[in-house]
Computed example of a mutant assay.
Amino acid sequence: MAVSPPICDFGAAMPDFTLPDPDGTPHRLEDLRGANGTLVMFICNHCPYVQAVMDRIVRDAAELQRDHGIGVVAISANDVADYPQDAPEHMKAEAQKHGFTFPYLYDEDQSVARAYGAECTPDFFGYNADGALQYRGRLDASGRSAGPPDAQRELFDAMVQIARTGTGPRDQTPSMGCSIKWKS
């Protein structure tokens, strides 16, 4: 069942965290922040909405990091007891397969996903340099399958605007995807 998160709560503070990568190495949010903003993405391996745009996520993240001073991090918070394909060893393989230029972290107790209010995969949170939320929209017009190759890069464009001005676009279309698989 597809889930859409709420609209952007402009100015909401970026919740702090320290989470491990699939090898168990801890990563602190403070070390992941970019000079001009930070993009926190909740994704997972098994979701068809994420898989449909994985190459676009990787492309946009690399360009935001390289050219716009945006820090990028991906987090998987799904219950791996019910969704074993989202377990850390599979996260590591997924990151290598797609050439992630950003850390892919595991939120085992789901506390970080709850702190952010993440609801689906993919769920994108774009913060300005001060750590104030400015974007909570979709990547582009893609759904369970990739949108047209020339689809407007909504997330990318919003993050570039945030990097330049500190504020995100007022008009945002919510992301859509699989619900976070919460532990019972």
Score class of each variant (00 low, 15 high):
61 A>V: 11
67 D>K: 15
50 V>G: 02
47 C>M: 03
76 S>A: 10
64 L>A: 02
57 I>G: 00
43 I>K: 00
65 Q>R: 14
81 A>H: 08
46 H>A: 01
72 V>K: 04
42 F>R: 04
84 P>W: 07
84 P>N: 10
56 R>N: 14
59 R>N: 11
76 S>R: 02
68 H>G: 11
62 A>L: 09
36 N>D: 11
70 I>K: 09
82 D>C: 05
46 H>V: 02
54 M>C: 08
68 H>S: 10
70 I>P: 12
56 R>G: 05
75 I>W: 02
75 I>L: 03
40 V>L: 12
69 G>P: 09
79 D>M: 08
46 H>Q: 10
54 M>F: 04
66 R>L: 02
78 N>C: 04
81 A>D: 11
44 C>E: 03
77 A>I: 01
74 A>M: 12
66 R>S: 13
82 D>T: 15
36 N>R: 15
83 Y>K: 14
48 P>M: 07
45 N>E: 09
76 S>D: 13
48 P>R: 05
80 V>W: 01
42 F>L: 06
76 S>P: 04
46 H>C: 01
59 R>L: 14
38 T>R: 07
65 Q>W: 00
49 Y>I: 01
47 C>L: 04
63 E>F: 00
76 S>K: 01
61 A>Q: 06
39 L>R: 11
75 I>N: 08
67 D>F: 08
54 M>T: 15
75 I>R: 06
59 R>G: 02
55 D>A: 14
55 D>G: 11
53 V>S: 06
71 G>W: 03
53 V>D: 06
37 G>S: 11
79 D>S: 10
55 D>L: 11
36 N>T: 10
37 G>P: 12
75 I>F: 01
68 H>Y: 15
58 V>S: 05
46 H>D: 03
48 P>C: 09
39 L>P: 14
64 L>V: 05
49 Y>E: 05
82 D>M: 06
70 I>C: 11
76 S>N: 15
50 V>D: 01
69 G>Y: 13
84 P>F: 06
40 V>P: 14
38 T>F: 04
79 D>R: 11
73 V>R: 10
83 Y>C: 03
78 N>I: 01
83 Y>G: 00
71 G>F: 03
57 I>W: 00
81 A>S: 13
39 L>Q: 08
42 F>N: 03
68 H>L: 04
41 M>C: 05
39 L>G: 12
60 D>H: 08
61 A>S: 15
57 I>P: 01
54 M>Q: 14
49 Y>N: 07
36 N>Q: 12
49 Y>W: 14
61 A>W: 01
66 R>H: 13
77 A>P: 05
43 I>Q: 00
70 I>A: 09
77 A>L: 02
59 R>K: 15
83 Y>N: 14
82 D>F: 01
73 V>I: 13
37 G>W: 10
39 L>V: 12
73 V>Y: 04
80 V>P: 05
38 T>W: 07
